[in-house]
Design a protein around this nucleic acid. Structure first.
Lengths: 138, 138
DNA sequence: TCCTACTTTAGAATAATTCCAAAGCATTGA
DNA sequence: TCAATGCTTTGGAATTATTCTAAAGTAGGA
């Protein structure tokens, strides 16, 4: 049975991340990682779950997204003061952001390069470098 | 009288930006541009105004910050889903962001460089490129 | 199976920001 | 200079996204 096997793989991934493979986490992970990379918000994932017949509270969706982000399974992209996206692609890459429709588009990590970051303040370490190229209709 | 002259300069700046030099706008501009560049939030500017004896509503602070940003007098820096800063430095530069204390530190534009931005989606133009180097205590 | 600690949940609470309709001014032309 | 006109400001309510809370549920080990 395919579904069962995938579920077991997902459970292993969660355990590996130090998270118990609970029903909500398995369901959300299933929705998040079933297909190619994409960008989503807590709200859209919650809706998607509802549509898929999975009943999880919005609070759980937020908890799960943050836990997954902390575990390196997701990446959070802040583009706007009122909207924050989660990206299932945690590889090296950056984003275009269309201000008109709020869409995110990936920029491959091989393409883009940031050079010349100055010496860091004492005792600090770089966690990540986020580049957002903001676009608007010409 | 120095104050009066500066006020007139500020008024000219606002008119040039297509904004009527009203009392609230003159007062806030005075606070914003009186000293070297800095980073602030609507809340901190509102507090600063109160302390300076200027009575403006928070709504007006928000309006004014957005109008100034639209006019190119300020730049908005989004670092966090719940906090957005305004920067009085609209010149070419980027930022370090200390996740621990929520501080912003400038990175001079001469220092940092972003290369390899791919072809833009049809009909789109780059509005700006924002780089945030996220730091945490080592 | 039972225990314990980790999770989920619904709904309240928070925080930042925007909306609203009424009252207040800056500007312009007579 | 003065009034008419339309842009502005205001306080408070409304909105939105997110987090908190306390109680009920569940996974995993002994």
């Amino acid at each position: 049975m395919r579904g069962a096997q995938r579920q077991e793989e997902t459970a292993a991934m969660l355990r590996h991340a130090g998270l118990r493979p609970t029903r909500p986490r398995l369901a959300l992970a299933g929705l998040l990682f079933r297909k190619e990379h994409h960008h989503l918000t807590a709200e859209t994932l919650h809706d998607e779950a509802s549509r898929a017949g999975v009943k999880v509270s919005l609070a759980t969706v937020y908890n799960t997204l943050h836990q997954f982000t902390g575990a390196g399974l997701l990446r959070q992209v802040v583009v706007d003061a009122q909207r924050s996206y989660f990206d299932t692609n945690v590889g090296d890459h950056q984003h275009f952001f269309c201000e008109d429709d709020g869409t995110l588009i990936d920029i491959p990590g091989e393409a883009i390069a940031v050079a010349g970051i100055p010496a860091l303040p004492k005792g600090m370490a770089v966690e990540c470098v986020d580049v957002v190229v903001r676009l608007k209709r010409a």
